[in-house]
Computed example of a mutant assay.
Amino acid sequence: MQPLRSISELPFRCRPALELLNLEQHRDAPDLESTQFGFCQVSALWLDGRADRAPVRVTDALVLAVHAADEPEALSDDVELEFFVEEVAKDYSVTVLLSAFLDRWLPAALSGERAIVLAMCNPHAARIRQPKAAGRTPVHYALGDVDSWLDTDSDGRWHIRLEAEAWRIAEHA
């Protein structure tokens, strides 16, 4: 099998939220080694910015789970992503800028959600610009590392929480 030649060939697909965010089993600490990527729709989740304010509840969201490269170039308005591709013959990784990735994949994933959440580490705290395909739908992104948690409230119901130093909304050009 030939290595990927374009962003369009990435196996970026819809997955169940708990699988995608590595929440299928109990963990006491973040799992920073997960290399899964894809997207999911969730009815609600919480964005917890440790350095900012109280957690924010986001409803009817499209969650895009992608990963910043291990040693990304420091860009002020973009993030270098790395995708780990597993194939029968060999495993390898490819890199692409977040802006180019969103231009290609966001239109295919959108289906009328009220919010978009990038479950993505942003090690250099890049200020993300609003993707054209998102229109006026707010795009939430983190500053620093992102950890996913499955919390249970006092009624025994669970909810997804994404934790980072801070959360921001992409800026319109």
Score class of each variant (00 low, 15 high):
S154T: 12
F83V: 03
V94T: 15
P16W: 05
R157P: 01
D60N: 15
P131C: 07
V85F: 05
D28H: 11
Q130D: 02
V146D: 00
L32N: 09
G135S: 01
R168F: 15
R136S: 13
P11F: 06
P138D: 05
E113I: 09
A126T: 03
C40E: 05
E113D: 09
W167S: 00
D151Q: 11
A133M: 06
V117W: 06
S76C: 12
G156F: 02
A17Q: 09
E113N: 15
A44D: 07
W167Y: 05
A29Y: 14
A61W: 04
D103S: 00
E71F: 12
T95C: 06
A119M: 05
G38W: 03
Q41C: 09
L143P: 01
H26Q: 14
F39E: 01
E86Q: 07
T35R: 14
R157T: 08
E82C: 14
P30C: 08
W167I: 07
Q25Y: 10
I7K: 06
D70V: 09
V96Q: 08
F83E: 04
N122A: 00
L20A: 05
A68C: 12
P30W: 10
E80R: 13
K132G: 01
V139R: 03
V146R: 02
D70M: 09
V42M: 01
V79G: 02
R15M: 14
T95N: 02
L64E: 05
I7S: 03
L21E: 06
L110T: 03
S93K: 13
S93N: 14
L32K: 11
E163A: 15
S43R: 10
E9Q: 07
D28A: 12
I169A: 11
W46V: 01
E86V: 14
R13F: 04
R161G: 03
H140A: 04
S154W: 14
L45V: 06
K90M: 12
Q2H: 11
T152H: 09
Q2A: 13
L98E: 00
V42R: 05
L118N: 04
T35C: 11
V94Q: 12
A69L: 11
W105A: 01
D78N: 09
Q36H: 10
F12P: 05
S93D: 12
S99L: 01
V79I: 14
R57S: 11
W105D: 00
G112S: 08
L162Y: 04
D31E: 11
Q2I: 10
F12T: 01
E80H: 07
L98R: 00
G49S: 09
L110E: 02
D91K: 08
R129L: 13
W105H: 04
G156C: 09
E87C: 08
R129W: 10
T137C: 15
I7P: 03
D103T: 00
V58D: 02
N122I: 00
N22P: 07
A125N: 07
H67W: 12
A100H: 07
P55S: 06
A65C: 13
V42C: 01
E165N: 07
H67P: 08
E73P: 02
L97Y: 09
T137D: 12
F84Q: 06
C40L: 02
W46S: 01
A170I: 08
Q130K: 02
R136P: 06
R57H: 05
A51M: 10
R127Y: 10
